[in-house]
Write a protein that binds this DNA or RNA. Structure first.
Lengths: 343, 343
DNA sequence: AGCCGATCTGGGAGCGCTCCCAGGTGTCGC
DNA sequence: GCGACACCTGGGAGCGCTCCCAGATCGGCT
C-alpha cells in the first residue's frame, strides 16, 4: 500500500498548517487568535481549517494548557428527591445555559450513594473539569468536606453542609422568604398560622422555619403547637396537615415549606372539608412553574429563580478561576412572593 | 532555591514509579491491571499511588488511547418543554446511573436553538466524548441529520427526526400503549372515547393517535369528531378538552397523550361538572411519578420506564463502540397500563 | 547608513500517558 | 544441557497541541 491521504483520519493542526503553507506554530496562533499573526496567514489558516473540517483535539490542548473548558455541576441528593424536584431540573438547565454562554461545557454529576462520593471525588480531581458548582444541601453530606481537600475551585449553591466559612456560597434568603409569606398571611387577617416545615437536616428548611417563627412572634402571635415537620414529599405534606388539623382544628392558615408538600396539604384540607382560601389560606415555597400555578386553587408561593442563582454562581466561579485567592463570600439572593388564589 | 519536592504539583505516573522503585511502564501496567506484572510490583505501585494521592491525568491518557470514557446525552428540545417534562429529568438521571455503572461519565447537552446546534456538533466532533445518546423527537429537528455526517457512534431515544433507517433507535411501543389504554376503556363499557393527541410533528404522539384510531375501529367504534390536537401543555390540554366537549357533549371517555395535558383536561371536565370517572373516564400517557398518582382522582396512565429505555440505549452504544459495523436496529420496548381511579 | 524596536515566523521542547519492542529471567521438556 | 516459551521489566517513541525562544523582516529614528 502506498502512502494515502487518510480521509478516515481526522486532520491535525499539522495538516492544516501544511495545507495553508505555514508552520504549526503560526497555524496555532491563527486559530487561537493570538497577537502577531499577519492577516494573510490568519486567513489562509482559517480557510484551510474550514476546508479540511478541522476541529482541535481537546485532549492534546488541555494536556498542555491544563485547562479543560468544562465545569462540573454536582447535585448531591438522594435519588428519590431528585426525580420529583423540578427545582433541580431548572438548575441543570440554567447551568447548561449559563456555562454555554461563556463557552464552557457543563458536566453534570449526580452523587448520592457512598460509591458516588468516591467516584465524584476521583472524577473532580482527575482533571476533567476546571471547577465545580456544587449543590449539597444535607447537613450530614460528606461531600463538601471532601471537596475542601481538593484544590479545585468550587462554588456552592445553598449552604455547604458542615462548613460555616471559607467557602464560596450563593444562597437564597430563605428566612426572608418565609417572612414575606407569613407577613402576607398576617396582613390578610390570619391569626392561627401553622407551618409544615421541611426536613431539619438542611439549611434551607431550617431557615424557613425560623423565618416563620420569628415573624409570628414579631406580630405578637404564638407559634406553639403550630409547626409540623415533613420530608418534602406529597404524602409527607398530607400527613403533616392531618396532624396539624388534629392538634389545632382552629388554624386559619398554613405556610408550607415546598410546593410539593403544599399539594399534599391541599388534598388533606379538601378531604377535611376546609375551603381554600376562605377557611384556610395556603402559602408555599419554591414557586415551581409546573406545580404552583397548576393547583386548585393555584398556590401563592415564594418565588426563587434558579437561573439567577446559577448565574451568580458561575460569575463567582469565573472570578475564582483567574484569581484563586479570591476572598470567599456568602452571596444571598432575595426572593419574592407570587400571590395567587390560595391565600 | 534548591530542588524541592513540589507538594503543590500533582504527582505524575513517573513520580509514582520512582516512589515505588519501578519504571513508568510497570507502574502504568500495574494501575491499569494489564497482564504481565508481578504481584510484588503491582502492590508496590498501588501503595505508592495511594500514598502520593495519585490520580491519572485524563487528558494525557485520552490523547494516546483516543478514548475519553465520556458519553454525551443530548436532549434536543425547546426549553419550555424541557423545564416541565419530568420524563426528561428521569432520562438524565437514568443516563447518569447507567453510565456510571459501567464506569463512564455522562456529559449532558441541551440543544434547542440554532446556535446550540452548531455548538453541539462542534462539541461532539471535538473528541470530548466516545459516543452519544440522542433524544430528538421533533420531525423538523436538523440535529439527527447533522450527526449522520459525523463519525461518532450514536443511539437515538425514540425515532430520529427525518431518518427512517440506518440508525440505532430504542423506542417505546407508543401505538401499543394507546391500544392498551383504549382497550381498557372499551372493556369498561365506554363507547364514545375521545382523544387529546400530542403535537403531530413528533413520532410518539403520531403513533399514539394512530393506536387510538385503530383500536376504536377494531372495536367497531367511530373515531369521527373525537380527536383534538394539543401541544403537550396543561393549558393546551384544557382547551382541547373544551373543544371536545363542545363538539361531542356525549363523550364518555378520553385518552390523553400525556399526563400534563390530562391535568388540564381534568380541570376542564371538573369545571364542566363532569364527574370522573362516572361521567367521563380519563386515561393518559407517561405515568409520570410526580403527576399521575398526585391528581384528583389519580390518573390511569400508560407506563413507560425511562431507566429501561436508557439501559437499552447504553447497551447498544457499548456494542457499537467495539464494533462500529454493528447492524442498525429498531429496538421497541413494551409499555404497561397503570390503572388508577380516573378510569 | 546604521540601529533599535515592533512585528512576524518556524523549530524545538515537553505536557503525561500508553504502547511497542528489545531484552532479561525463570521453568519446562527433551 | 540447551532451546522453547512463558513471564516480567525498562526505555523509546509518539499522541496533538501550546509555549518559548531564536531568528528574520521591516519600518522609523538618530
Amino acid at each position: 500500500m502506498g502512502p494515502r491521504a487518510g480521509d478516515e483520519e481526522r486532520p491535525t493542526l499539522e495538516d492544516v498548517a501544511a495545507f495553508a503553507g505555514v508552520s504549526r506554530s503560526t497555524a496555532s496562533r491563527a486559530l487561537n487568535d493570538d497577537a502577531y499573526v499577519s492577516a494573510a496567514a490568519r486567513e489562509k489558516v482559517q480557510a484551510a481549517a474550514r476546508d479540511l473540517g478541522y476541529s482541535p483535539n481537546q485532549a492534546a490542548r488541555s494536556l498542555v494548557t491544563r485547562r479543560t473548558g468544562a465545569i462540573a455541576v454536582v447535585l448531591s441528593e438522594p435519588e428519590a428527591r431528585l426525580l420529583d424536584d423540578p427545582y433541580r431540573t431548572a438548575v441543570m438547565r440554567a447551568g447548561y445555559r449559563e456555562l454555554a454562554d461563556i463557552g464552557r461545557q457543563m458536566v453534570l454529576i449526580f452523587s448520592d450513594t457512598r460509591e458516588d462520593l468516591s467516584r465524584t471525588v476521583r472524577f473532580l480531581e482527575g482533571g476533567h473539569v476546571d471547577g465545580a458548582l456544587v449543590f449539597a444541601p444535607h447537613r450530614a453530606d460528606p461531600l463538601p468536606k471532601a471537596l475542601r481537600l481538593l484544590r479545585i475551585p468550587v462554588v456552592f449553591g445553598g449552604q455547604a453542609a458542615g462548613i460555616r466559612r471559607g467557602v464560596h456560597v450563593v444562597d437564597f434568603d430563605n428566612e426572608g422568604g418565609a417572612r414575606l409569606a407569613v407577613e402576607h398571611l398576617v396582613a390578610a387577617g390570619r391569626r392561627r398560622i401553622a407551618t409544615i416545615a421541611g426536613p431539619q437536616d438542611q439549611s434551607a428548611p431550617i431557615d424557613r422555619l425560623a423565618g416563620w417563627r420569628k415573624t409570628l412572634l414579631d406580630a405578637g402571635l404564638d407559634p406553639a403547637e403550630l409547626a409540623e415537620e415533613a420530608d418534602f414529599t406529597l404524602s409527607g405534606g398530607a400527613n403533616a396537615m392531618s396532624a396539624l388539623l388534629a392538634r389545632r382544628p382552629d388554624l386559619d392558615a398554613v405556610f408550607v415549606a415546598s410546593d410539593m408538600m403544599a399539594v399534599g396539604a391541599l388534598r388533606t384540607l379538601d378531604a377535611a372539608g376546609r375551603r381554600i382560601p376562605e377557611d384556610v389560606a395556603v402559602v408555599s415555597f419554591d414557586d415551581n412553574a409546573t406545580l404552583a400555578p397548576a393547583m386548585d386553587p393555584p398556590l401563592t408561593s415564594v418565588h426563587q429563580d434558579p437561573r439567577e442563582q446559577v448565574h451568580a454562581m458561575v460569575e463567582t466561579l469565573m472570578q475564582l478561576l483567574d484569581d484563586q485567592s479570591l476572598k470567599p463570600r456568602q452571596h444571598v439572593l432575595s426572593v419574592s412572593l407570587a400571590v395567587r388564589a390560595s391565600s
